[in-house]
Design a protein around this nucleic acid. Structure first.
Lengths: 228, 228
DNA sequence: TGAGCAAATATGTATAGACATTAATTGCGC
DNA sequence: GCGCAATTAATGTCTATACATATTTGCTCA
């Protein structure tokens, strides 16, 4: 068997009481000294369990007042924006990346002259075009990518493994495929595509900006909330 | 001023080193006893900082081996799935809900006979159709909604305020508008729409399941990661 | 009545030490 | 050399205690 640490057991029992609705938002949970007596352990052990729950946003703790089940989670879901190559391979499909163009352009965004690597290509799953990608990469922040071989693997896979970022924004929309992209994906002009535009920053600087257009019926994004 | 706790300071310093790229994925960070000496504190204090980082997925810790900066596996973003009515009003636009149909149907999902409230309607922003919605609500779990007036406010707004859930899944895709929905939204048949299908559960039971179709160029979903 | 202050209380932070667990490393025997 | 067992170095858990800090409660006095 596996010995579950006590603090983990305490955490799990309270968490499941909240999940099952036995404890409702706003409810007060027993104070540390009570739980300490209930489980026959030291206060630090209970504290570790409750701190973890507070850190995960499930409890709100106020000195002198007690610990309460946290209020309305602003319906926020977790969207795993994956590395396409890894995701497709993970599904057991055959993945291929086709580099269409790669060039260095000079950009003068914000008055700071800098070089940008511009990459365009197509992602294939099981031989069928899945997504068209246009990406700009800030060479000032990521000079090493100039050396990377982008004919074999897409820049996203390289970036995810090599470059940290502090902030990211994704805009998800549906659009009618523009002619050039429709042609690259082998679909009708004006057919619906799922568009994902992502920008990532490190501090104040943009690291990369990518626009992906997915063939509508071959891809969906999934966002979840809850145990998993 | 506010005195920042020591464990928090340690956590922040390591976190920012990772964010700034001074520590890269796979790098080993000093062992607890070293940090303990560096900061002149007890090991539990260092441990608390490192445990928090591990809990947040920024470190991976292995006994006997040490603590390492985690490989960014999938980039998880936070998608705020909004209550449409609140979101549109929040943008200063005029919101209107048009109930198209409302009926109780008998469903025998999983062999458990139960009643389901089926609701269809259209969301308008500033007088223009924004989204078509079809929703099923489990009356066994949410009997009170049978009394609610769904001609004035959409069921989503009522549910968000009255019903807790433990788990939710959103599937986001682009589709060509089916004729009936195209007509309701006043767009061309086959025009692209952004489709959002959401199911929410309480424990093992489905609370509600909704399919929303957004007019492509009037709506986008935004998912973020980072300070904000 | 009400304003302000003091006490009580629950959580927050930190320590020093003990023992458990895990896995990399070393070294022994063959 | 090779395989396996013993060692050892790292994190994981837990205790008992101490003092800090925030906030509610209630008391006192104008």
């Amino acid at each position: 068997m596996k010995p579950v640490p006590l603090h983990e057991r305490i955490r799990a029992e309270i968490e499941s009481a909240i999940m099952a609705g036995r404890l409702r938002p706003g409810d007060r949970i027993p104070k540390e000294t009570d739980l300490m007596a209930e489980y026959g352990c030291a206060r630090m052990t209970v504290n570790k369990a409750l701190s973890a729950l507070a850190g995960a946003g499930m409890l709100e703790r106020r000195k002198r007042a007690g610990s309460f089940v946290a209020q309305p989670r602003t319906q926020s879901m977790v969207l795993d924006v994956p590395d396409l190559a890894a995701q497709i391979k993970g599904r057991g499909q055959d993945y291929r990346w086709d580099l269409v163009s790669r060039k260095v352009v000079k950009a003068d965004a914000l008055g700071t002259p800098s070089h940008v690597l511009s990459v365009t290509g197509v992602h294939y799953a099981d031989g069928l075009p899945l997504a068209h990608e246009e990406r700009m990469i800030n060479l000032a922040l990521v000079p090493e990518i100039a050396e990377a071989d982008l004919t074999q693997a897409p820049p996203g896979s390289w970036l995810i493994a090599h470059v940290p970022w502090t902030e990211a924004e994704n805009r998800i929309s549906a659009t009618a495929a523009p002619p050039a992209i429709a042609r690259a994906l082998g679909i009708a002009r004006g057919a619906p595509v799922l568009s994902l535009e992502r920008r990532t920053w490190r501090g104040p600087d943009t690291v990369t900006r990518v626009r992906q257009h997915f063939v509508a019926d071959r891809y969906e994004l999934i966002a979840r909330f809850g145990p998993n």
